[in-house]
């Protein structure tokens, strides 16, 4: 189908778009890694940026927050999704509505109340404080529910005849068939939480719990006021180079995970 529609105009236009969209990023990488004096490779800017802020600590915080959230959200999502997909019980609509509410009302919409709760729990400036409002993901629940619904009933009945109890059926029959949905959800969750800014910004006030995106914004503020533009470019490079490498290695898979974000 594509052969008949391929025309040179579209190819040129697409090339142009790619240049416009890629150029600013390439320019920042160029400014970071190429020395203006020698024209050769330099790691000086990178070293300077690494010294200007505890990026190692920020990176560890980010991994712990994002990884921890992914595990908890996946466990809750799988269990609740399974119950909602396979059992009938009074109040089911109400409970489904509760998890839908979690999707419909973003944390940003109830920011100040969330802040007061975290403050009341004495979790300000902690990684757990950043995580608590996000522990249950409605998107995870709906993704798993959808994946479990498409598992044929016959498979479950066969497993029951083989002597599996409910937990066994869940682990051996249902979970393996939800792996694609779980991976797509993982891409969504990880992307959302490692790029999240406002919530971790207001919860943290020192480097001990701060994730990398908040750290980067702090460096940007400092370098902007001191007009240390190279520091800004290099600090940005520290954050985007790893994610660009991951993206280059799994381009199509990551893009299709994004496109299936709302595939319930």
């Amino acid at each position: 189908m594509a052969v008949s529609r391929r025309n040179p105009l579209a190819t040129v236009a697409l090339g142009l778009v790619a240049v416009i969209w890629g150029f600013p990023t390439l320019w920042v990488l160029y400014a970071t890694f190429i020395s203006p004096r020698t024209g050769g490779l330099t790691l000086g800017n990178l070293a300077g940026a690494l010294q200007s802020a505890p990026f190692g600590q920020y990176a560890i915080n980010t991994v712990l927050i994002v990884g921890g959230l992914l595990i908890v959200q996946t466990v809750f999502g799988a269990v609740v999704g399974f119950v909602l997909a396979r059992y009938e019980f009074p109040g089911k609509a109400l409970i489904t509505g509760l998890f839908l509410l979690q999707i419909v009302v973003p944390v940003y919409a109830i920011l100040i109340q969330e802040y007061e709760i975290v403050q009341g729990l004495h979790l300000l400036n902690t990684k757990l404080g950043i995580m608590v409002p996000y522990l249950v993901s409605g998107i995870a629940v709906l993704s798993f529910r959808q994946a479990f619904r498409s598992v044929p009933r016959e498979l479950e009945e066969a497993a029951r005849l083989d002597g599996y109890d409910t937990v066994g059926v869940f682990l051996r029959v249902y979970l393996p068939r939800a792996v694609p949905a779980a991976l797509a959800f993982a891409v969504i969750s990880v992307t959302y939480h490692w790029t999240d800014f406002l919530w971790p910004l207001i919860v943290t006030n020192t480097a001990s719990a701060r994730p990398i995106v908040v750290g980067l914004a702090t460096v940007a503020e400092a370098s902007e006021s001191g007009l240390q533009w190279n520091l800004l470019a290099a600090a940005t490079a520290i954050v985007i180079v790893p994610v660009l490498l991951v993206f280059v290695s799994g381009t199509r898979r990551i893009l299709s995970a994004f496109a299936s974000t709302f595939d319930w």
Partner: peptide, 10 residues
């Protein structure tokens, strides 16, 4: 990669 690099960065 070029077109979708803004999508994957914060």
């Amino acid at each position: 990669v070029s077109i979708f690099s803004p999508t994957v960065m914060p």
